[in-house]
Amino acid sequence: MKQIINIMVAFLLVVPSMAQPTANDLLKKIDQNLSSKNRVFESEMTIHGKRASRTVVSKTYSVGDKQAFTEYLSPAREQGTKMLKLENQLWIYSPSTDRTIQISGHMLRQSVMGSDLSYEDMMDDRKLTEIYDGQVLRTETLDDRTCYVVELIANVSDVAYHKRLMWVDAERFVPLKEELYAKSGQLLKQTVMSEVLKIQGRWFPTKMVYKDMLKQGDGTEFKVLNASFDQDIPDYLFTKAALKQ
């Protein structure tokens, strides 16, 4: 989830530009634009299972890219479950067992809450500009919006996805669609973003549908219920002790 937020947040752009910008410019502008001290948002994730769909509501506090704390609010089974990410470590606290469990190694490759996302997808907190070289390929119309199609090719080897294609709204500078590719060029995953709203002066896509393209199924739907920036978040939230409270 965090990764989605990262992506989303990374691509919010307020300053419109008339000339076609370079991809790196785009990425940098997105970064600059979104550099808030911290963010707090409540979100709703709907997982379309083979048989039934489930909706999980959570509240996330994050500072920069390195620290994040998520508390699950519903459904009842998940309520009170907390997740803490510090740098590249991840802990989950479950109230029913009163246990703090470190998620590491192979466990990171497991799916989060049965969604099409893995813990690992949430862990990569490097900026896109650091690990990808970008290039604006063309402009295209997507859902009646003019978009820049940005191609990102990894410039480091330890990334999950070698290539990304991103459709960035040319006016509001919000990503509307992203495709993740394997090294071979095979399309693996697709994210479609919509319902772009203005929050605290920023354009914010509040709905994303995340889908594993190789698998049958309807994917995972992610909805931001409310978001706020530059809040007072107490430091102790980002400690293991906070998990148990």
Partner: peptide
């Protein structure tokens, strides 16, 4: 689909 030594997804 597989992942290479660095964890990058690949598929063919």
């Amino acid at each position: 689909r597989w992942r290479d030594s660095q964890g990058t997804f690949d598929a063919a």
